[in-house]
C-alpha cells in the first residue's frame, strides 16, 4: 500500500443521475414540443405518428412536417449556440462573451441584410440567398476577430473590440434598412427576431451536419480548452500552443454560431446564459463535463423557448428572441449574483 492510496479522491465527479436528468429533460421538452400547440396531440399518438401507426392524417402531417423538424431544429440550434457560447467564454476568459456579443451575429445580420434588402434579381448574391450570405457574414466577422486576436493578446480588449465591431456592423445594417423598400424590411425584421420554424426536411440534414462537425471539434478538444482556463501565459508555461489552440477555438465557434445564425437568425441570450446554467449544475469548469452539459441544457431550453413562443397559437405567436431574452436575462442575473465572478 502506497501513501497515496490513503488519499481519498472525492473530487466532484459528475453523478450519472445528473446526466440522466439532463438527457431526460431534453427528451421531455422535445415530446412536449411535439404534443403541444394549436392542436394538442397525446404523446402515444405522437409515437404512432412517428412509427407510421394508426392516427388521423392531419395529425401525421402536423407532427412529421411541422413540429418534428421545428423541434429538431430548435434542439440542434440551442445545443450549438450553448456550445459556441461556452467556447467563447473560455477563449476570452470572460463570462460575458457569446456569439451575440463578438460580432458573429452582427456579421450574419449584415449578410442577411444584404441578401434580403438589396436582393438583386440576378448575380451571385441572389443565388446565395439568405442562408449563404448570412453564413458568409458570420464567418467573415469571426475571421476578422481571429486576425485581430493574433495581435491583441488580452481577452478583455478583444471583447471590447468585438463589441465595437458589432455596433459598427449594426449601424451599417440600420442604414441599409433605412434605404430599403418597406416590403423587404419586413422579411429582414422577422429573420432578425429569430425563429426555428421554416427549416424543413430539405435543410435540416445540412444544418445537422455542420453542427455535428462543430460539436465534435468542441468535444474532442476538451483538454486544450481546459488549459485556457489558466490564462494564456500560464497555459503557455504548461506547454499549450496558445496560438494554434486559439485558432481552433475560433474556427469551432465560427462553424457553430455561423450555422445556427444563418438558419435561425440571431437568437439572443442562449449562447451567453446556458454555459452559466451548466456551470451551476455541474459545479466544475472542466470542459469534459461542461461541454456536453451545455449542449443538453441549451437544446432543452431552446425547445422550451420555441414552445413558449408558439403557445398563444395561430398568427399571434411571440418573437423567439423576446422569449429567450425574457427567460435568459433573469437567469443569468441570478446565476451571476449567486456564483460570483466566473
Amino acid at each position: 500500500m502506497n501513501w497515496y492510496s490513503t488519499v481519498t479522491s472525492s473530487r466532484a465527479k459528475v453523478p450519472l443521475a445528473l446526466w440522466l436528468l439532463l438527457g431526460l429533460s431534453m427528451v421531455g421538452a422535445m415530446v412536449a414540443g411535439l404534443c403541444l400547440g394549436s392542436v394538442s396531440i397525446p404523446p402515444l399518438s405522437i409515437w404512432s405518428a412517428l412509427t407510421g401507426g394508426d392516427v388521423p392524417v392531419s395529425w401525421r402531417t402536423i407532427v412529421m412536417h411541422l413540429r418534428l423538424p421545428r423541434v429538431l431544429a430548435a434542439a440542434m440550434a440551442g445545443g450549438g449556440l450553448a456550445c459556441s457560447g461556452l467556447m467563447m467564454q473560455t477563449l476570452f476568459g470572460n463570462g460575458l462573451a457569446g456569439p451575440s456579443v463578438l460580432g458573429v451575429s452582427s456579421g450574419a445580420s449584415l449578410g442577411a441584410a444584404l441578401a434580403l434588402l438589396l436582393s438583386p434579381t440576378e448575380g451571385v448574391l441572389s443565388r446565395l440567398g439568405l442562408l449563404g450570405s448570412s453564413f458568409i457574414g458570420a464567418f467573415l466577422a469571426m475571421a476578422l476577430v481571429a486576425v485581430v486576436a493574433e495581435r491583441v493578446r488580452k481577452g478583455a480588449t478583444l471583447l471590447i473590440l468585438g463589441l465595437m465591431m458589432g455596433y459598427t456592423i449594426n449601424a451599417v445594417v440600420s442604414v441599409l434598412i433605412q434605404w430599403a423598400p418597406a416590403e423587404r424590411v419586413h422579411g429582414f425584421v422577422s429573420w432578425s427576431f429569430g425563429t426555428f420554424a421554416g427549416i424543413g426536411w430539405d435543410r435540416l440534414p445540412w444544418m445537422g451536419l455542420a453542427l455535428s462537425l462543430g460539436v465534435v471539434m468542441a468535444l474532442s478538444g476538451h483538454r486544450l480548452w481546459d488549459s485556457f482556463l489558466l490564462g494564456e501565459s500560464c497555459a503557455a508555461t504548461v506547454g499549450a500552443d496558445v496560438t494554434s489552440i486559439r485558432r481552433r477555438m475560433i474556427m469551432t465557434v465560427a462553424i457553430l454560431a455561423g450555422t445556427v445564425t444563418a438558419y435561425c437568425g440571431p437568437v439572443a441570450f442562449l449562447g451567453i446564459a446556458v454555459p452559466h446554467l451548466a456551470r451551476g449544475l455541474i459545479g466544475s469548469a472542466r470542459h469534459r463535463y461542461l461541454t456536453p452539459a451545455s449542449i443538453l441544457t441549451g437544446a432543452t431550453l431552446a425547445v422550451l423557448a420555441d414552445l413558449f413562443s408558439r403557445l398563444p397559437g395561430g398568427a399571434s405567436s411571440l418573437p423567439l428572441n423576446a422569449v429567450t431574452s425574457l427567460l435568459g436575462a433573469p437567469v443569468v442575473a441570478w446565476v451571476v449574483m449567486r456564483g460570483g465572478d466566473r
Binding site: 479522491s9 473530487r11 466532484a12 483538454r223 481546459d226 488549459s227 482556463l229 489558466l230 490564462g231 501565459s233 500560464c234 504548461v238 506547454g239 499549450a240 456551470r279 455541474i282 459545479g283 466544475s284 469548469a285 472542466r286 461542461l290 456564483g339 460570483g340 465572478d341 466566473r342
Partner: peptide
C-alpha cells in the same frame, strides 16, 4: 500572475501541469 479559475480543484490545477 497566479490564476484562480472558477470550478477547478487544486488537484485539477496540478493536473494541468501534465498537459
Amino acid at each position: 500572475d497566479r490564476p484562480r479559475p472558477w470550478g477547478l480543484t487544486a488537484l485539477e490545477m496540478v493536473e494541468q501541469g501534465r498537459f
